[in-house]
Amino acid sequence: MTSPSESLDIAELAIYLPLLFLTLFVVFRHGIHRQSGWIYLAIFCLIRIIGAALGIAAAKNPSNVSDLEWSAILGSVGISPLLLASLGLLKRITDETTEKIPTEGAIEKQGWFGTAMSYTILGRIFGRLGVHQLATSYRSRFLQLLQLPAAVALIICIVGGSDLTDSSVSEQSTGGKLIKAGLIIFLIIYICLFLLTAKSATQINSLPAGEKRVLLALIVALPLLGVRILFSLLAYFSTISTFSPTKGSVFVRAFMAILEEVLVVVAYTLAGILVPKYVVAAMDDTRNEVRQPETRMNIPARYAPQQGARQVV
């Protein structure tokens, strides 16, 4: 008979397999060279597929401890890709509503931040893929800055999850502390993300119609992300057995973690399908981007270059 945990893994596998193809469609539709956040959704779906497959394998073969360990580790690193996706989408919105500042455009040419980001795992991977970190305002650069602790927290949680599965009590204690440290970083990033999204929401009237869909997706996703982070905090900071990461209720995990993750991915993917894509058409004297839609339809006034136009900060 299939256990509740195995049933949950099967359900995740059935959900994330088609979502992976949809997210990849969105990534290639908008271009992998653009920093839009959708690439992290594809990575998240892949993590969930591998984790669910390992969980099913562990249920079929309980003697294989390695499958169970890696399934638990991959299950604990879902917050980071979703936060990175949210930061990327919010940056897209911010670039539409904030005053532009000169920028070199590439991650390697953005001073100490570009240097620091390039030495992270994500920076190296996306640097090789040609993913450029374009910042057009100070708020936009701050959003880029938040990606660095999100990547660091991801690494901390992976190391902590690995230590938790160790047979040594001291290693398990260290693993728990590392995961708690990573969760605190995630919480701080979430608070910043919430405040910056609220700021962007006050400027919704200055956004093109397509970009409003992205902002609405963020507004829908933020409470769901909050519940997801709350579940992890309760799992590692409270002594309530229901939220235990190893022996907790499968139903609580399904409705406070798995469901929220699925809804966030669906919201962001739909936004990626509905929002028009754009490309960099030209650069003015201050190296500001002027974006034009890849369509022959009517061009929104906000995409056209306007001399002397004042931007909302």
Rank of each mutant, 00 (worst) to 15 (best):
A72N: 10
I188H: 02
E261M: 05
V77T: 05
F243D: 06
L222F: 10
E211Y: 13
A201T: 05
E99H: 05
S3H: 04
P18N: 13
L84A: 15
M283L: 05
P293G: 04
Y268S: 07
R139S: 04
I39Y: 06
F126G: 02
Q172K: 15
F255K: 01
R29M: 05
L148K: 02
A209P: 00
F142M: 13
R253W: 05
F113I: 09
D166T: 08
A106P: 00
T295D: 11
S173T: 12
E171Y: 14
G160P: 12
V250N: 10
V26I: 13
A257D: 13
N298H: 14
L195N: 07
I49Y: 08
G51H: 11
P102E: 14
I32H: 14
L46A: 15
I101E: 11
G123L: 02
A106T: 09
A11H: 05
P81S: 09
L274Y: 07
L122Q: 10
S118I: 04
A217W: 02
S232K: 01
L87K: 06
Q35F: 15
Y16R: 13
I10H: 07
L187H: 00
S71I: 09
M297T: 07
T197E: 08
L224I: 00
V250S: 06
N298P: 04
V65N: 05
A201W: 12
L129G: 14
I43D: 01
Q133A: 12
F21M: 14
I179S: 09
I15R: 00
L154Q: 14
A181D: 01
C192T: 01
E12P: 00
S3R: 03
S5V: 11
E171V: 15
R124V: 11
A181R: 03
T165N: 15
A42L: 08
Q133Y: 14
I158V: 15
S5D: 10
A235G: 04
L187M: 02
G51T: 08
I240F: 04
L222E: 03
P18E: 14
A221G: 05
L84K: 08
I204E: 09
W38V: 13
Q292W: 07
I73Y: 03
L134F: 03
T202Q: 11
P102C: 10
M117W: 04
I56L: 12
C157I: 13
A235R: 05
H132L: 09
G88M: 08
Q110P: 02
A198N: 10
R29G: 11
S167Q: 13
